[in-house]
């Protein structure tokens, strides 16, 4: 019963892991039939002389930090909002969740359409209110913040639902006890709910960071990393080097560095999940 799975994981997971690390130590490109072992040359080049990679690394960090901050703060607020017994709350939850379900490629084309610099809807609204039209994705300073805003818009409800599941697990007994002890609703929230939510929040931070690191489609579809590498991320560079310029050795080195970043986060996440309070 397990043989196919074992074989599958060996072929599509364990072997690729080892082979990618090996390739990262070679100078292989798709144009050449043979390759040579070059040691850590690819890594040295990446970290010390490839300005685009360093830029992409910085951009990725910038994107991850602000996207995660956004989805955590807004997601927590949204969960509190959705945790009330209000008429029609289910409908709101459904609508809030739409952007999560819709694919990134579609989200990207729709926002690019709305933010089209010359005649797009948002600039038309700005002009109608006597405000200056914006260059949006054509601007080096605006493109990345817009990517971040879009990602928050798309992802926030997903993390809100995780927060919501946590909120619904807060023991009612503790809240009632706090109120018997004379706490008002705010104090009960501050001293019971907030500490209870700390592990869930940590989990959402790690989860959102992993997901944000892996985002690829909007940069690929909207800007291709531009203008002037303003939205170039490690994921996009990994794609470009490996599958556009066919620099497989160099691309493998990027993949290894990138995966090391993800791995650190995944291991933190595993730790949180296997800690006793989440068992």
């Amino acid at each position: 019963m397990v043989a196919p799975f074992v074989l599958f994981n060996l072929v599509f997971l364990i072997f690729p892991l080892g082979f990618c690390i090996y390739l990262s130590l070679t100078d292989w490109t798709m144009y050449k039939p043979t390759w040579q072992f070059v040691g850590f040359r690819n890594y040295a080049e990446l970290l010390f002389s490839d300005e685009v990679f360093v830029k992409a690394l910085g951009n990725t960090m910038y994107y991850v930090v602000f996207t995660v901050a956004g989805v955590v703060l807004l997601g927590a607020a949204m969960a509190v909002l959705l945790n009330q017994r209000l008429r029609g709350i289910g409908l709101f939850r459904t609508v809030f969740y739409f952007p999560v379900v819709v694919d990134w490629v579609i989200v990207s084309t729709v926002w690019l359409f709305l933010l089209e610099p010359s005649i797009g809807l948002i600039n038309q609204v700005l002009r109608a209110n006597a405000l200056p039209a914006q260059p949006f994705f054509n601007s080096r300073s605006q493109a990345m913040p817009l990517m971040i805003g879009m990602s928050i818009w798309k992802g926030v409800a997903y993390y809100a639902i995780i927060f919501l599941a946590g909120l619904q697990d807060v023991p009612q007994v503790l809240l009632e006890q706090a109120q018997i002890d004379g706490a008002n609703r705010w104090q009960a929230f501050r001293h019971v709910t907030v500490p209870w939510m700390a592990p869930v929040t940590l989990l959402v931070i790690v989860l959102a960071s992993i997901n944000a690191l892996r985002v690829f489609s909007p940069m690929y579809v909207i800007t291709g990393g531009g203008p002037v590498n303003a939205t170039m991320t490690v994921m996009l560079l990994l794609y470009n080097q490996s599958f556009r310029y066919l620099e497989m050795g160099y691309g493998s080195a990027i993949a290894v560095v990138f995966s090391a970043l993800v791995l650190v986060l995944v291991l933190i996440q595993r730790r949180i999940l296997s800690s006793p309070e989440n068992a």
Binding site: N9, L13, P16, C20, F258, S259, V262, V266, R270
Partner: peptide, 24 residues
């Protein structure tokens, strides 16, 4: 051992597999 293989699948980032998977 089987568990180790499963956990490896959870932990190994997909990005590191793209080039070798493509070659396979």
């Amino acid at each position: 051992l089987l568990w180790v293989l499963v956990l490896a699948g959870l932990i190994i980032p997909e990005q590191v597999t793209y080039i070798p998977r493509f070659m396979i």
